[in-house]
């Protein structure tokens, strides 16, 4: 009898390590407005904060927010330091080999090039800055053979590189660049927008299928009743569903 109870307990545990716990830890970067950033109080804020809180409510989970550097955000998920990545991470085949994604909660977001307003840039042979380990960085490396890729640890540094003349242009999510271009004055969009990736989704460990399905269900319910579209409009994330 005892072994029977034990083995059912193990089945419950293997079904989803995160679900057996009371708290789901949400990992984010906290440096990518409007998706996620730290507000003046030092708390995680932004589109994904509001979205994540709502998703947890609908999935009846208690959630907790953690920040982690972008560089090591996947390794730390895989080794179990938090249970989800909700950090403006686009769904790509390369990442899918390592982690699972929920259904996307944004449309495939256009990435855009930004250069100095007074410069005319030939993108095919330019020096292009991007955040390391992003879809934009691999896009420049593989799709723009004439361009020189300049990688930075944070998105902030890639913008600074354009201002300083280090790079001719920066490639990043359009939603991230919009407020910077609007307020900076010295920067302007250039070239055509490019569509990379399959929209942004939440990353979970491949072994956590039940958690993934719960969040996917919650995302679907937010899509159905229009609350997701309202959030996307509020934070100016891009196309609605």
């Amino acid at each position: 009898m005892k072994t029977l109870i034990l083995s059912t307990a193990i089945v419950a545990l293997t079904a989803g390590a995160a679900l057996a716990q009371d708290v789901v830890r949400m990992g984010t970067e906290g440096a990518y407005p409007p998706y996620n950033f730290l507000n003046d109080k030092g708390e995680v804020d932004g589109f994904e904060r509001e979205l994540g809180d709502e998703l947890c409510k609908r999935a009846e989970l208690t959630c907790e927010w953690v920040t982690n550097e972008w560089d090591s955000i996947i390794p730390n998920l895989v080794s179990g330091n938090y249970d989800t990545i909700i950090a403006g991470m686009s769904i790509t085949d390369e990442r899918k080999q390592v982690i699972d994604f929920t259904e996307n909660y944004t449309q495939p977001d256009p990435s855009a090039f930004v250069a100095m307003a007074d410069a005319s840039v030939d993108l095919s042979g330019a020096v292009i800055a991007a955040q390391a380990a992003t879809i934009q960085a691999s896009y420049v490396a593989s799709e723009l053979p004439g361009a020189t890729l300049l990688e930075f640890a944070t998105p902030e540094e890639s913008i600074a590189a354009v201002r300083s003349g280090e790079a001719d242009a920066v490639l990043a999510d359009k939603a991230y660049l919009d407020p910077i271009v609007a307020e900076g004055g010295d920067l302007a969009f250039t070239g055509e927008n490019v569509l990379i990736g399959g929209g942004v989704g939440m990353g979970v460990r491949q072994s956590d299928t039940e958690l993934r399905d719960k969040f996917t269900a919650a995302i679907q319910s937010m899509k159905a009743d229009g609350t997701l579209n309202a959030l996307i409009a509020k934070w100016e994330i891009g196309e609605q569903f």
Binding site: I74, A133, T148, L150, E151, E157
Partner: peptide, 25 residues
Amino acid sequence: GFPAQSQRGDALYYASYFADKTFNP
């Protein structure tokens, strides 16, 4: 802070590239 240009970096840059891609440090 110094950026790696066209993925030309030092030994540590490539080591962390592989650690990043293979998830096996």
